[in-house]
Amino acid sequence: MAVGRLTGPLALLMPGQSAQYQGMGSGLYRDVPEFAQLMDELFLLMGAAGDELRSDWLAASPRVPIDHADRSQPLLFAIDYALGRLLMDWGLRPTVLLGHSIGELAAATLAGIFDPASAVRIVRHRVGQFATVPAGGMAAVAASRAQVQPHLRPGVDIGAINAPRQTVIAGAAEPLRTTLATLRRAGFTSAPVPSTVPFHSELLRPVAVAAGPLLASLPVRSPQIPLVSGYTAGYLTDAEARDPGYWARQPVDPVLFWPALTTLADAGPQLLVECGPGNGLTTLARRLPQVRSGHSEVLALLGPPTGPSREAEQLAAAAARLGISPP
């Protein structure tokens, strides 16, 4: 693998649910003071819930498991945003941002659409609503959306298009189980997505409705960095950025990640940097023709999940490749 410095247009890819793992980013919290400060600012904005979230995050045996949306959602948002902020404080100038699900809220905050305090209120409000959503789950199917669609039982919806043959479905536990059994009989492979909430299914509609008044009350600015929308697969317009409904619908509408990634890649050769835990989005991005041909490159800041002790070293190696350093 090349170790030379990477230059040119640069996209940040910010992961969402399914990227989480216990201890993610906790090594950075211990070893990189600037990162710890950014995280602490976000925990502080969360109030008492922030203290609980932090102690569970750093605990060897958390009280609430990491795959629970009460933990995964605010932590993914916070780590994605803090990592992005850190890179920018160190001199990185991303040309475009693309987030997957909750990762898009982190991207919107990094782009200045929301200030961190407002974004934290949105996350807190959503998490508070999850308790009202019927128990359910999510699964990734090795098939196209068109192949999956006819097999969906009532109560199960398309949750995300991650790749040409990777479609995520979401819904209530029982119809999800029967849908997966039907898909298996039809010859399609699937794997569970670790989530206690059936994100991007119609079951989340009440959460979107409930978020309306809060979103309408928050100050919004035009994006200072262009975003490719994971919901339209086009560049986010000013009107969309200012539409409370766009942000309210994030947890219920399907994520069009692959079409959005294609839009981003079509802009020309660039470096796609995964700004968050794991390497799930860069693994998907490696399927892009532009990456396979070598015209664009990918880099995961933290790489595949490893022990917390290696995170600072991985970040330093990535920073060196990006030609940035602490001020």
Partner: peptide
């Protein structure tokens, strides 16, 4: 993973 193939 480096070739773009995930667990699914």
């Amino acid at each position: 993973a480096d070739l773009g193939y995930d667990s699914l």
